[in-house]
Every structure is written in structure tokens, then in C-alpha cells.
Design a protein around this nucleic acid. Structure first.
Length: 512
RNA sequence: GGCCCGUUCGUCUAUCGGCUAGGACAUCUCCCUUUCACGGAGGAAAGACGGGUUCGAUUCCCGUACGGGCUACCA
């Protein structure tokens, strides 16, 4: 076993928004690192210039920041193993690729794209619909294994475009112990000769991940299950490069699946089913298309992190609500599931609701101000807003729900649903409210209990049932059939505002 | 097609050989609430299939079925 310091890395490619699965990988990396007093490092895998999307790297940082998963080392934070962008480490990879060729573990391949395509057509059969560049095919292609040394030297000298491919051994069994799956093994004759170094001199993921993990002294490598089939390539590379003793421990995380049907969760599913799959809003600079994020949908970062953690992990008890701090304490790799989990947006919203309920009003001040559009503390002071938040937060599942649940406190209702009272509206009720106006006008105190008492007294005097009058009052103050106790609302609204709204609606009901 | 991984209520999951199979979301019923929610009580709901091993299998092994992933000079 190695006693090295724990160092884990998350290495996204900047090709778009960070989706649920991506953030969960970050989370598990982070939790494991922090739990062991280790480092969580962020590396950017931007070796594919054709897919690189400007702005994506910054977006990744913003997401990590919002979630509270700040790396110890990264392209922006710096660190002892800089640079952390693969595009800036380009020169490094070539030398290792050459070393592999020299040692006979890899070879140059000069095949053109067209030749490769032709090969896939020529060797395609019903039994083998997708022929691979493997130990059989390579003997029929143009590479340093089939060409004589002089020709190869000449081609290289001429600068002929070429790639470096790993030479997979025949009939060897490669096996390793996955932290989640246990013993996993592969027969090398089943895996193809993957490209290690591309014609443009950039490494593929296979070479880069091994070289960088080695150089950056990564001790544990967590990634999605979709990487499992290429694990033998990486294992062999560690061995061929002579670094076997330093190889990190692997963990392949289960996939997050789409809610209906089967398959990996994709951005499309979110669009189709109406829920976010990205942590934060993502605008594709190529298409200008906006994909809504969990943040903008009204999720608290605590809830988002919590829901992600529970998608594939639990602590063995019935507890479901965990703070990030608690997760760091209780997380354990051996309780991560093997099977993929379908994403359930309803449950996700439940997590958010729980977090809104248990977050102190103070901490909700900022997001609520943003949603209500009141940035000026003068409009509504913090203490008042805190009172409002405490009154309504139980009925808010998303932060955006505060718009409806609390909007009427800070502004006149946009729409007053007079239709809800009009059918039963009559002279007696009109009279009652006119009198109520006078009573409230004269009252010295202005708090919920006395307002309610006065209301009921007056109702009795007019021989009306309070129940019939509460809804009209609610419509007057709130505008609709929702919100907390009506006298609590009136108390916060204040005398002037309350009377104003009653008068306003009263005239609306009289002169439609 | 090949290789790899997986399989407990509709969904997320507990169970590390003794199970009347527990919890949560969703759903249904009732209570609370003179709005809408929150909340409370309760109901319905699961071990893919077939073989072993064992006194005993959801749990261990094998096979089958089903699902998923990979099969690019993408990660």
C-alpha cells in the first residue's frame, strides 16, 4: 500500500456546461481528499481544440465556487505542479510517447483518415460491425511495425503526419482492484491499439491522464463508469512507463441515468422533461442557446450538493440531509453504489425544500432580495425581510417561489383576483369592510392578534361569519388565494399599506 | 456483433445468511388549516428468472434474461 499523501483530481474538458454527473464526480473527489487531509486538484483537459468552447473553463470555476468545492491547485489558483492546463503541457507528452516507441510498447502509424475509414469498411462483417485497429489489423496497415526501418525513418524525416499507438499485447490478462467494483479484469487481445499521441502533437486522454497523474502525484483517480473499458490501456501505460508502483487507486463511479426510459442523462433530457441538468446556466457560445441551471432554477448550493451525494451514496442510516461538512466526515468510498441511479427531479426539489426550511432567514436574505428585485435596503429593512422569510419559507420549494409567496409584502399585488370574491359579494360585506377600515384606522396597536380580534368582533356585530370574510381580506392584501395567515400579513404590511389595499380593492369591487 | 459493468417497492435506497424485507420521494386516504402550503396519522407498493451451496438464501456461487457503458487522431 502506498502511504503517499492523498491527492485527487478532477479533470474536465472545457466543452460545455458541467452536468450532474460531472459535479458529482467533483464532489466525491473533494470529499475523499478532504476526509484524508489531502489535496483536491483541478486540471483542465483541453487537448481537443476542435471541441474546446471558449468560456467553458471559467464556467467550471464558477460552478465549483457556487458548490463550495474549491480546489487546492488549479490553473487559476496555481500550485506546485503547474501548469494545470494540458494545452500548456503539450511538450511533455511527446517525450513519453517516444519513450514508449523506443521501448517497443508503442509504434508510429501513418494511416490517413481515409485509409482508416476504408479499413473499417473492408473489415466490417455482421459479426464485427465496428472493426478496431487491433493486433490483427495493425499488420495490414501502414505503421512502423509493417514498414521497414528505413521507410519509417524517411517518413519521419519528411514530417509525414503520424500518430503514436499503443501496442496491445496478445492474450494477457490485465486486472486491477476498483475501489467500488472490486476485482476487474480484461483480456488485452480484446482491446485495440489506442492512439496515444495525435497527429497534431496533442496527447489523447489516455496518454495525458497517465502522464499527468504521475507527474502530479495523484494518489486516487475517480471517474465515471464510462471509462472502465479503457482502464486496461491506462494500467498498461503505467506499467510500460515504469511507474507501476506509483499508480493511483481507481474508482469508477456509477452513471446518472435519465428519469424515464434508460440511458445516460443528457442535456436533451432536461430540455425535454423540463428540469436542469447543469449546475448553472450555460450559454453555448456557438449557438447562443441557453440551458438553465440548478442555481437559476432556485436551488440552494447546499441542497444541490446534498442531492448529488445521495445519488449513489448513503451512510447506511435513514439520514438523507447532509451538509458538506458532514459529508466530509461521513463519506466513505465503500458505500458508493455500483449501479447507476435514475435522476428524480421531484426528489431533488424535496432536498431543496428541506434546505430552505432549515436555513436561517438571515442567510436567505441575499438570494431572496435578488428574487424579489429589492436591492435597496431602504425599501425593506433586513429585520423586516427576515420576518417575512420566516413566515413564508416553509411554503417555498425553490428560491424562486419567494416571488409569489413574498412578493406582495414588498409591492402591490400585480393582479388582484377579484373574481374569487365577486360572485358572493354583497352590500353587507361591502359595509363590513368599510367599517373595518374605520376600526383599523382608529386602532392604536398593530399586531396580528388584536387585528384578528377586532375583525371577528366586527363580523359578529354585523352578523356575518368570519369565514366568509377572510378570503375577501386575503384577496385584498395578497391578490390571490395563497400566503401565510392573513393577520400576520397585515401586521407586517403595516397600517397604512393594509388600509390602502383594502380601499383599493373595495373600489375595484364597487366599480368594476 | 465483441468486451466490460450492473439488477430490492414507480424512483432513490437499507439489508454485510435468520425478513413480519426498513426509510425517503411520488401516489392514495384521513386529520390539522375559515386561503395555499407546512405538518401529523395511515394505506397500497419490491428481492428478474433457473440451478446450486446451506438447517436456512434478497444476501454466497454458476447459468439465463434484461438493462447500461465502451467499441474515434472525444473526453
Amino acid at each position: 500500500m502506498n502511504s503517499r499523501k492523498v491527492r485527487v483530481r478532477f479533470a474536465p474538458s472545457p466543452t460545455g456546461g458541467l452536468h450532474l454527473g460531472g459535479v458529482r464526480t467533483v464532489l466525491f473527489n473533494y470529499l475523499f481528499a478532504k476526509q484524508h487531509g489531502g489535496d483536491f486538484i483541478l486540471r483542465i483537459e483541453d487537448t481537443d481544440q476542435t471541441r474546446f468552447v471558449p468560456g467553458a473553463e471559467e464556467y467550471i470555476f464558477n460552478t465549483l465556487n457556487w458548490c463550495g468545492l474549491v480546489p487546492d491547485e488549479s490553473p487559476v489558483h496555481g500550485g506546485p505542479f503547474a501548469p494545470y492546463r494540458q494545452s500548456e503541457r503539450k511538450a511533455l507528452y511527446r517525450q513519453y510517447a517516444e519513450q514508449l516507441v523506443k521501448d517497443g510498447y508503442a509504434y508510429y502509424a501513418f494511416d490517413t483518415t481515409a485509409e482508416l475509414e476504408q479499413m473499417r469498411i473492408d473489415f466490417k462483417t455482421t459479426e464485427n460491425p465496428s472493426p478496431q485497429y487491433n493486433q490483427h489489423i495493425r499488420t495490414k496497415m501502414r505503421n512502423s511495425l509493417t514498414l521497414d526501418a528505413a521507410t519509417v525513418a524517411q517518413l519521419l524525416k519528411e514530417g509525414a503526419p503520424h500518430v503514436v499507438r499503443i501496442k496491445m499485447p496478445e492474450q494477457e490478462t490485465v486486472h486491477f482492484t476498483d475501489m467500488i467494483r472490486g476485482e476487474v479484469s480484461f483480456n488485452t487481445s480484446q482491446v485495440d491499439d489506442k492512439v496515444l499521441l495525435k497527429a497534431d502533437g496533442m496527447p489523447t486522454y489516455h496518454l495525458a491522464v497517465v502522464v499527468d497523474d504521475y507527474l502530479m502525484q495523484v494518489s486516487h483517480a475517480f471517474r465515471g463508469e464510462e471509462w472502465l473499458p479503457s482502464a486496461p490501456v491506462h494500467l498498461l501505460l503505467w506499467k510500460y512507463l515504469g511507474w507501476e508502483a506509483e499508480m493511483p487507486q481507481w474508482a469508477h463511479l456509477p452513471l446518472i441515468l435519465k428519469p424515464e426510459g434508460n440511458g445516460k442523462l443528457s442535456k436533451r433530457d432536461g430540455d425535454r422533461l423540463g428540469f436542469p441538468v447543469f449546475a448553472m446556466d450555460w450559454i453555448d457560445p456557438k449557438t447562443n442557446e441557453l440551458t438553465i441551471g440548478f442555481k437559476q432554477r432556485g436551488f440552494l448550493p447546499e441542497a444541490f450538493v446534498n442531492l448529488l451525494a445521495m445519488l449513489g451514496w448513503n451512510d447506511g442510516t435513514d439520514q438523507e440531509i447532509f451538509s458538506l461538512k458532514e459529508l466530509v466526515q461521513k463519506f466513505s468510498m465503500d458505500r458508493v453504489h455500483k449501479a447507476g441511479a435514475k435522476f428524480d427531479y421531484e426528489k431533488a426539489k424535496w432536498f431543496n425544500h428541506e434546505w430552505i426550511k432549515r436555513t436561517p432567514a438571515r442567510q436567505l436574505l441575499k438570494p431572496v432580495r435578488q428574487i424579489l428585485g429589492i436591492y435597496d435596503p431602504g425599501t425593506s429593512s433586513d429585520p423586516v425581510l427576515e420576518k417575512i422569510i420566516d413566515l413564508v419559507k416553509d411554503r417555498c420549494t425553490l428560491l424562486t417561489d419567494f416571488a409569489q409567496q413574498a412578493g406582495f409584502f414588498v409591492a402591490l399585488p400585480e393582479e388582484v383576483d377579484t373574481g374569487a370574491v365577486k360572485p358572493k359579494w354583497d352590500v353587507k360585506k361591502n359595509l363590513f369592510f368599510t367599517e373595518l377600515l374605520r376600526t383599523y384606522q382608529l386602532s392604536n396597536t398593530w399586531e396580528a392578534a388584536s387585528l384578528e380580534a377586532g375583525f371577528k368582533e366586527l363580523a359578529a356585530a354585523n352578523q356575518l361569519k368570519p369565514g366568509e370574510l377572510m378570503l375577501p381580506l386575503r384577496i385584498m392584501l395578497v391578490g390571490g388565494k395563497y400566503g401565510p395567515g392573513i393577520f400576520d400579513i397585515a401586521a407586517i404590511l403595516g397600517k397604512e399599506e393594509t388600509l390602502k389595499r383594502i380601499e383599493l380593492t373595495l373600489s375595484l369591487l364597487e366599480h368594476p
